[in-house]
Amino acid sequence: MNDQTVIAGSMWSQHARNIMPGFVRIIGRVIGEVKIHDINKRIVYNQVLDINTDEALKSDDLSNAVKNRWVEVIQGNEVFKKNTYTSARQQVVQPQQSQQQKQTNVENNNINLDDLKQLIVETTKETVKAVVDNMPSKQQSIDTNEIANAVANKITINNVQSETKKTEIDKTNNVFIDIDTKNELKTNIKDGELGTLTVQDATKAKNKIKKIKSLKINKLT
């Protein structure tokens, strides 16, 4: 592959990105599923969904879901601010994790550092070689092995672990619905009078309760 082809390829992908329709990336923030009816999309808890910008703009249900924090926009938030949308590539913002979630969901901490270093060495070599090969004019010789080894030596178990923790997946309490226990709705229902009443003899029930009690006492003694 010659330099011109690479440059042309790069230019094409840059222009293609600019003319491609933008998208909004959202993540589900309530346990279960949120349905965005007017664009027929569903998003489940803690999963990511990409929605075409045009669809996102016309969806009242999506705006409502964002407003109520049933979903969180992690990319393309500017779409919801009128006339400020740009198709330029945005940096993806990771949802913030609480300390509790980090503690309860630590995964994949047993990383083999040697394997990781080797992987980075190989990847860096390939990357540096590709960059050097694609330079229009090679002004000086570059040792790809030296660069790769320098990068690998920067890695310690501590910074690997701290990076790993950043990618931990939230699976517990990151839900934003407010629970207002004081708020009451008006109703014509009287306390203790809702529903159909069934009455049963409690002779057997009393026997069972005795057995449960003795079970507990046996365990205590």
């Binding site: 009443l197 009455v199 409690a202």
Partner: peptide, 16 residues
């Protein structure tokens, strides 16, 4: 369904 036991030895269940 809620369940209570009254002093007349009856289990009362409300179903909604």
């Amino acid at each position: 369904n809620s369940a209570i036991m009254d002093i007349n030895d009856e289990v009362k269940i409300r179903t909604q």
